[in-house]
């Protein structure tokens, strides 16, 4: 992957997630900005540190804690 693309990956993901929450009924009826932020943060975190170092529990806590805000 080109470095430019890699740098943009987080932004691409965020755009795609925002599109999903805007157009998918099951998402926009239940989720809010905090959830989107948590999901994007978890994605960036996993990508930045590598899946070998990021456990499922870490991602779960990130998303679940933010969802509970």
């Amino acid at each position: 992957m080109s470095s430019t693309l890699e740098n943009e990956l987080g932004e691409i993901y965020e755009r795609e997630v925002e599109k999903l929450i805007e157009f998918e009924r099951k998402y926009h009826s239940a989720l809010g900005a905090a959830d989107v932020a948590a999901v994007v943060q978890a994605f960036r975190f996993a990508l930045e540190h590598g899946v070998d170092k990021v456990t499922v529990q870490m991602l779960y806590d990130m998303i679940n804690d933010r969802s509970g805000d």
Partner: peptide
């Protein structure tokens, strides 16, 4: 919300 968030995360990927 957590489950849907994970589904959103998967669909996002």
């Amino acid at each position: 919300r957590t489950r849907l968030s994970f589904e959103l995360a998967c669909d996002g990927v």
